[in-house]
Design a protein around this nucleic acid. Structure first.
Length: 192
DNA sequence: CGGCAGATACGCT
DNA sequence: GCGTATCTGCCGT
């Protein structure tokens, strides 16, 4: 078995999986075309973490986060936005990695149409922006990311020296936990 | 360009 | 009822 393998990465606790997911690709098949992006910013969430949706146990909304690793958890928030997570760890344990920002590799024109802007840096530089660009909503909640139309693939390895670890964004609980990771200097990172 | 309010609907208390 | 793992536009400088 290949040492650097998607299955090996997502089977780990979210805090270990998060930095390993940087550089991996998300491939979205959409209307017969391929949209491809590279993950540049993530945050880890765990069942023992007060900021996590799974902190108070399983509900219909967060159910997929307790499911098998390597699947998607897509939630709806602020009355208008979707965000994408990759479920990690053991089945039955509610943990995952929020995809906060990606860099477009292929399919830019479709992403521009979905986002209604042609400004490259506005396409996927935030968790709700990238869901809009890739047309990800609750229909993909629980989806197995080994299968079309939304897949997770190994990308290029990111050296640990190029990874910045810091506090998470947009939460009000456990604000000081340094569970956010991003690729140093990448312009698509949502916030410095 | 930095700060802030408004949009908008759903899950949970 | 209320708070939310956000984004955008509009206001001021």
């Amino acid at each position: 078995m290949h040492k650097r393998d998607i299955g090996q990465i997502v089977a780990r606790p979210s805090l270990e999986a998060a930095p390993l997911l940087l550089g991996c690709h998300i491939v979205r098949e959409y209307q017969g075309k391929e949209l491809r992006v590279r993950i540049v910013e993530v945050e880890a969430y765990d069942q023992l973490d007060a900021a996590s949706h799974t902190y108070r146990g399983m509900t219909p909304r967060n159910r997929s986060m307790f499911g098998p690793p390597g699947h998607a958890y897509v939630y709806f928030t602020y009355g208008m936005h979707y965000c994408l997570n990759i479920v990690t760890g053991k089945e039955g344990w509610g943990s995952g990695v929020l995809i906060r920002a990606v860099e477009p590799i292929a399919g830019r024109e479709i992403m521009e149409r979905n986002r209604r802007t042609d400004t490259l840096l506005q396409l996927t530089s935030g968790p709700a922006k990238l869901c809009q660009a890739l047309e990800v909503d609750r229909a993909l909640d629980g989806h197995d990311l080994a299968r079309k139309p939304l897949q997770l693939e190994l990308g290029e390895h990111v050296q640990s020296g190029d990874i910045v670890q810091t506090v998470r964004v947009g939460i009000t609980k456990a604000v000081h936990e340094p569970w956010r990771f991003y690729i140093a200097g990448n312009p698509f990172v949502s916030k410095l």
